[in-house]
Design a protein around this nucleic acid. Structure first.
Lengths: 145, 145
DNA sequence: ATTGGTTGTAATAATTATAGATACATCTAT
DNA sequence: ATAGATGTATCTATAATTATTACAACCAAT
């Protein structure tokens, strides 16, 4: 299984909001067209990003804006906001291992620390990239085409 | 979404094979009891580990053994063998972004390098832990209990 | 204050992925 | 031959995700 597409969609959404902020009112329908998903998916995601203090969504008249300096939003912030993995645990454990087996009984304790370290390595890398970095990449690429 | 439990099951299986190799014939039924899943799930997984050269499965008379020195099997080897993510890509992309939108058209190119780096950070950490390390942890914990 | 366009959210359906279960041919050692 | 395993196909069940529909709540402009 892969990490939910909510993550890449969230980044896509943030890049769009920033890219088009001067030329369009960036609504959930507008974003849904660019991402090519149902507008409700976008609205739900925007709510999550809003709760995390990353974006502001204007009720009634509509539109979205980024709430924080772009270089203070890391990919990890977006990842956490979008809740891409259950309860922050990257690895899925098989449930109910046999408690009568010494390995089954201890498998969680055996693996937990190691798995946490792996997860932390990933999250640290995510923390090192900001949305500003991504937008810089985006501007370069869009100009070429 | 989380990474498939096939990964933790695979590690569990390897620890079992090693722990019980002198006292039991470790069959798919035996392993299925410890992990508490259907024996077919174990057999399918063993086939994947076998293809990767990690274990040997004895047809007919039954039983399983580890094929390589334990300190030469990394968690990354097991992870790759178990095919926990589709085509090796950790992050799931939303499909068919709008090609008429400059952001939608380029979102893949914009994000690919960054996502690869994040994935690589995780994989490097996985590479640094061997099954021998895990079994050392296991032996310590099992003794205490 | 009505209207048009939008968000927020519930409810439900459709889709996809995973795991479970059954069945049985195949194999090996005895 | 037989008993006990594996290898694998097929089908079902379960779970998770995403899509869709619907509509109340909301805001700004006229």
């Amino acid at each position: 299984m892969q990490i939910s597409s909510r993550f890449t969609i969230a980044v896509h959404v943030l890049v769009c909001i920033e890219t088009f902020k001067n030329d369009y009112k960036v609504t959930s329908d507008f974003l849904a067209l660019s991402v090519n998903v149902n507008p409700v998916v976008i609205r739900r995601l925007l709510q999550q990003l809003k709760k995390a203090g990353i974006v502001n969504v204007v009720r009634g008249s509509g539109g979205t804006s980024v709430e924080k300096p772009l270089d203070e939003i890391t990919l990890l912030d977006v990842y956490n906001a979008a809740e891409c993995v259950e309860e922050g645990a990257l690895f899925h454990f098989h449930e109910n291992p046999n408690q009568l087996c010494p390995v089954g009984k201890n498998i969680h304790a055996i693996l937990d620390t190691r798995l946490e370290e792996i997860q932390r390595a990933m999250e640290n890398e995510m923390k090192s990239v900001t949305i500003q970095d991504v937008i810089n990449d985006a501007e370069k690429l869009i100009k070429i085409k």
